[in-house]
């Protein structure tokens, strides 16, 4: 219990004094995870919607693959990205290993299947509801997708937020491909792992609280921005 109080106190001081390291680490966490979120959403939202409404040859296979990828252990993703980006790997010449870009790549791979899968689930329900009407109104494929995305935007937001939660709290993969280098690739989760290892529980806890606050803060901010909570709209 004492550790928790100390952690809280430490967190409080780190925040009110705008500790430079804390700010830097937090901003990097946000930058990496938000970038990964934007890229993953750009891929996963249309993909999930398409999977819900288009019948094509390898649809079942794609869905199974997606679900399998969703269960992929992040550490393994990290390992594979590491191998691909390492100097002797196929993308070694790009020199991306141990950079935030490598961390973004790993996170995109981890959260894209998750977002696509949740999107697919939600869009399938909406499509079942709308199907007859949209066929009857003679809509084009593009119009169908746009209608579903527009009317299902709240579900899509939920899917994206689930992805963000997973990304910002992820440690295994980014530890491997980022290397937890001070001032370069250290983010909240890797810093927590490091401080815990060193036995500095107060600092680790402080970082943990900031991480939780960030995760909740981004959730609220996105909901507020899209104003989905406004009464009467839903």
């Amino acid at each position: 219990m004492n550790d928790i109080y100390e952690g809280l106190a430490a967190a409080f001081w780190l925040v009110v004094t705008l500790d430079a390291d804390l700010i830097e680490i937090s901003l990097r966490s946000l930058q990496v995870s938000l970038t990964a979120l934007v890229i993953a959403s750009a891929i996963a939202l249309p993909l999930g919607t398409l999977l819900a409404i288009r019948r094509f040859r390898y649809r079942r296979l794609t869905i199974s693959l997606l679900n399998a990828l969703m269960g992929l252990p992040p550490v393994v993703v990290g390992l594979i990205v590491y191998i691909l980006l390492s100097r002797s790997g196929p993308f070694g010449v790009l020199g991306l290993l141990f950079t935030p870009t490598a961390m973004i790549i790993a996170q995109v791979i981890i959260i894209t299947p998750l977002i696509a899968s949740i999107t697919h689930q939600a869009m399938r329900e909406l499509w079942a509801e709308y199907h007859d009407l949209l066929i009857s109104l003679n809509t084009s494929g593009r119009q169908r997708i746009m209608t579903l995305i527009l009317d299902g935007r709240r579900n899509l937001l939920t899917a994206s937020l689930a992805g963000f939660g997973r990304a910002i709290g992820e440690v295994g993969a980014i530890m491997i491909v980022g290397g937890n280098i001070d001032n370069a690739t250290r983010v909240l989760t890797t810093a927590i792992a490091l401080e815990t290892g060193k036995g500095d529980f107060a600092l680790a806890l402080a970082l943990g609280f900031v991480l939780i606050a960030l995760a909740i803060g981004v959730n609220i901010a996105i909901h507020w921005l899209s104003r989905t909570e406004r009464e009467g709209r839903w």
């Binding site: 909406l126 509801e129 709308y130 009407l133 009857s136 209608t147 009317d151 299902g152 839903w234």
Partner: peptide, 24 residues
Amino acid sequence: AYVFQTPIMLRRSVADNLRYPLQL
């Protein structure tokens, strides 16, 4: 045009439901 046995409502306002066929 077709009116289904169980009405299908778009998850939008009444006005937007009416607009929809013309917007298409």
